[in-house]
């Protein structure tokens, strides 16, 4: 942690970056995102096991862009976020200084995105065992059971859109769910509207989701909605061999194609 604070201070003093996006502590010992702009504030940075939020979500916010060049305290999933955002032209190549934290909790600084890519070759963050277990359970369910399972879960959804707000890949200026001409998805929280919203969210994140699981953590109703995007990632990997967030130049999975994409359902 001292290492991180000192490095942040150095970077801000040398004006290599204008803002350090990291974790700080609130008055009641909760963790929140902090935006350090003065070297003397660097002591406010903390990093421990409570720091789970994917800070990549702030990189595309115009209030944060306004600060200037950022450095970001990044777990492995946040590093993937940065690469994916770069491949989608949302951050400039090497426009973000990545202060990485490895899976073992070691601090590593990445001066360029190329070095992040090299680091990613060693392997990405694993999916938590709890999620894998639930995913395996859903896979074994019959169609009706799956429908019942998701109806039960999704009826709790209040359409607060915390999943969207917490997702670093949901950066559209205007989300399709907010359109009312045509109205794609009903405004009130209805069963079918909730289903459509979560299906749409998974489809729009398909092949772009970096499996950080932030949407599931953000959900105030504790619906395992992150499993839907995990499933979409799995499909992208199995069917198209595409894994999001490993390269800063990867073409978008669903806006590219290969003539030999293999399917077995089209008559």
């Amino acid at each position: 942690m001292e290492e991180l604070r000192n490095r942040a201070k150095q970077l801000l003093e040398a004006k290599t970056v204008d803002v350090v996006i990291g974790y700080g502590e609130t008055l009641n010992n909760k963790i929140k995102a902090v935006f350090i702009r003065k070297p003397e504030d660097a002591v406010k940075l903390v990093y421990d096991e409570r720091c789970t939020q994917n800070l990549g979500v702030y990189l595309t916010k115009h209030e944060v862009k306004h600060f200037g060049k950022p450095a970001i305290v990044a777990s492995v999933s946040t590093m993937r976020t940065v690469l994916q955002l770069c491949s989608e032209k949302q951050v400039k190549d090497d426009g973000v200084l990545v202060l990485g934290v490895t899976l073992e909790g070691k601090f590593l600084e990445f001066p360029t995105f190329k070095t992040v890519e090299t680091f990613m070759e060693k392997g990405v963050q694993p999916i938590p065992a709890k999620d894998l277990e639930l995913m395996a359970k859903i896979e074994t369910m019959s169609l009706d059971e799956r429908w019942a399972f998701w109806q039960e879960e999704l009826q709790k959804c209040t359409k607060c859109y915390a999943c969207r707000a917490s997702c670093p890949m949901c950066y559209c200026n205007r989300c399709m769910v907010d359109y009312n001409q045509p109205q794609w998805i009903s405004v009130p929280s209805t069963e079918i509207g909730n289903l459509e919203w979560h299906l749409m969210r998974a489809m729009h994140l398909a092949g772009r989701c970096v499996n950080c699981g932030e949407c599931g953590r953000a959900c105030p109703q504790e619906i395992p909605i992150h499993l839907l995007t995990f499933k979409a990632s799995e499909e992208a990997q199995n069917q198209f061999g595409a894994v999001a967030g490993l390269s800063s130049t990867m073409p978008s999975t669903l806006s590219s194609w290969k003539p030999n994409d293999k399917e077995n359902f089209i008559q």
Partner: peptide, 20 residues
């Protein structure tokens, strides 16, 4: 070709949600 990829993905996600 774009549509084919979309349907390949859609079928995976939709059946996961229990859509027949």
């Amino acid at each position: 070709f774009h549509a084919r990829r979309r349907w390949m993905m859609f079928r995976g996600v939709a059946s996961y949600l229990g859509i027949d």
